[in-house]
Nucleic acid binder design. Structure first.
Lengths: 169, 169
DNA sequence: CCACTTATTCTGAGTAATTCACAATAAGCA
DNA sequence: TGCTTATTGTGAATTACTCAGAATAAGTGG
């Protein structure tokens, strides 16, 4: 669905080689399925397992959804993929790991965008946990912003009154 | 299961009266089921629909899980409850709404705690969305901290090596 | 207090996302 | 080249949740 032709990916053949090395270093075998899943996630970030499967099938027509699930789960456990779980949606995957970036989701159309951390790099990692909190050692801080994207805002503005004013009350 | 006898809840009979009024003002009928669900969520925050059902059944033995789901969804839509979706877990509910507090979840035992907003009140609502972001108008910012609670840290410290040396940065 | 309207609940079945068990395949190594 | 075992494929199961329709009861007017 992109107007770009070739160099759309976040990563090219170089990345594939890196993936092979990473798989090896984690004592995983390098299979065409795993490489294809990684390439698919890299090319279409925030895709669901099913969407990833569709993309992969362009290359490996016979891969099963179950295998994709297994691969996604394993690679996520390895840290090669990151899994995000938006509300009212299946889990989604991306290759951007390590940096602690967050996500903004449009409540209208479900579109998801990456958002670099608000205050700079890792402000979220040391919140006001002092007062009687037993959960220390924060490792991850996932921030999920919810809002309306420009498309949906425009659509809402054209189709209906600015404020739906649902409940009269 | 609490050692307390009566005044354990976050809210007493006063809250019940408020709930009745809120239900009325939203053109909802005041049923014992709805009040019981509200009381259950107030008494055990971050409970799943199933857990809420168990609590409610102490009072209303015949309530069905489906009804609890309907009530939870409706009250969440009304803003009387807030729904959170931790990773690898069913949705959870709480009566604390309106304030934008966040949550810390222990990756060891799944325990969830409330966390007041890090930078004060609403820092998360205006992140660095400037650069080419199409999702403006941020309405909600859910922050989910993941870490290890003291119990699990102690347990891990006794059973295995102290620090698994987490991600660097 | 009674009848009536309709939201709410209950009964029972259905769906989506994900996982499990086990047989078939193929990656890595001797 | 052949062997070992991780990985994939096949098929079924599970979890969390939703939907359709009948039964119940909250709120309202008489």
């Amino acid at each position: 669905m992109t107007t770009d032709t070739t160099t759309e990916w976040t990563s090219g053949p170089t990345a594939e080689h890196q993936w092979e090395q990473q798989l090896h270093s984690h004592d995983r075998r390098v299979t065409k399925q795993r490489l294809a899943v990684l390439a698919a996630v890299a090319r279409s970030p925030h895709a669901t397992a099913e969407a990833v499967t569709d993309v992969v099938r362009a290359e490996l027509a016979n891969i099963t959804l179950q295998s994709v699930y297994v691969v996604l789960a394993d690679l996520t456990g390895l840290g090669m993929l990151r899994r995000i779980e938006p509300p009212n949606s299946a889990a989604r995957y991306e290759t951007r790991t390590g940096d602690n970036h967050h996500h903004a989701i449009c409540t209208g159309c479900g579109r998801i965008e990456d958002v670099d951390c608000a205050v700079g790099h890792a402000p979220c990692l040391t919140p006001g946990l002092d007062a009687g909190a037993t959960i220390g050692r924060i490792v991850i801080a996932d921030v999920l912003y919810q809002g309306t994207c420009s498309d949906c805002a425009a659509k809402a503005g054209l189709v209906e009154a600015p404020a739906p004013a649902p409940a009269s009350h």
